[in-house]
C-alpha cells in the first residue's frame, strides 16, 4: 500500500503522520528560520558583509579613474602607492591588478573600488600571517563595485585571482601593505 513504485490507493493525503516525523518537520522549519534570520540580521549587526554600491562603467572610464588615483598617490621607494585619500582602486586585467601595490593604515576605513578592464576575475585576499583569514569577491567588467574595508592588523596582504581568466591566470598576484 505504501510502495514508491505503485500508485497510492485511497485517501493517502489524510493518512496520519508519525509523531517523530512531525517533530522533525517542526525542527526543520525552526532551523530554516534561524538560517534566514541570522543571515538577514547580520547585514545590520555584522562587520563582514559583501555589500557596497555598484556603478556601471566602461573600461576606459575605469582606466581614467585608476590613472587619476595613481597620479594623486605618493609612490614609495619600493614602488608601493600611498593613497591620497580614502579611496583605493583594485582593478583586474589579464594578468595583474591595476592600482596595486598600495600602502594602507590600520584602523582606517577605505573604499575599495573593485572592477575589471577585460574579463571576469576573482579578488582573493589573505594576510601573510594567517592564510585562513581570507576574503573572496567576484569582479566583472562593466561594473565598479565600492566595498569599504578596514584592516585592524598590519601585515602584507596577498591578492590572488581565483576566477579563471586565461592562461596567465595563475600568475595574477599583487599585494596590499597594511601598516600601523
Amino acid at each position: 500500500m505504501t510502495s514508491p513504485i505503485k500508485p497510492p490507493e485511497g485517501n493517502w493525503w489524510d493518512q496520519p503522520v508519525n509523531r517523530r516525523e512531525s517533530i522533525w518537520l517542526g525542527l526543520g522549519v525552526g532551523w530554516a528560520l534561524v538560517l534566514f534570520g541570522w543571515m538577514s540580521a547580520f547585514t545590520r549587526i555584522g562587520d563582514q558583509n559583501p555589500i557596497g554600491e555598484t556603478y556601471r562603467v566602461t573600461s576606459e572610464e575605469l582606466q581614467e579613474r585608476v590613472d587619476e588615483f595613481e597620479a594623486a598617490a605618493e609612490e614609495r621607494d619600493d614602488g608601493a602607492l600611498v593613497p591620497a585619500g580614502d579611496d583605493i582602486y583594485v582593478v583586474g586585467y589579464q594578468f595583474d591588478w591595476d592600482g596595486l601595490p598600495v600602502v594602507l593604515e590600520t584602523g582606517r576605513e577605505y573604499d575599495f573600488h573593485l572592477g575589471s578592464y577585460d574579463v571576469q576575475h576573482g579578488f582573493s585576499i589573505r594576510p601573510e600571517h594567517a592564510y585562513s583569514q581570507q576574503i573572496n569577491l567576484h569582479v566583472t567588467p562593466g561594473k565598479e563595485w565600492v566595498v569599504p574595508m578596514e584592516f585592524d592588523e598590519p601585515g602584507t596582504y596577498h591578492v590572488l585571482c581565483n576566477e579563471f581568466c586565461g592562461e596567465g591566470h595563475r600568475g595574477m598576484h599583487n599585494t596590499i601593505i597594511v601598516e600601523d
Binding site: G46, D47, N49, I51
Partner: peptide
C-alpha cells in the same frame, strides 16, 4: 568569518 577585518557597507 567574524575573525576577519571588517568589510562591507
Amino acid at each position: 568569518l567574524t575573525q576577519l577585518w571588517s568589510i562591507g557597507a
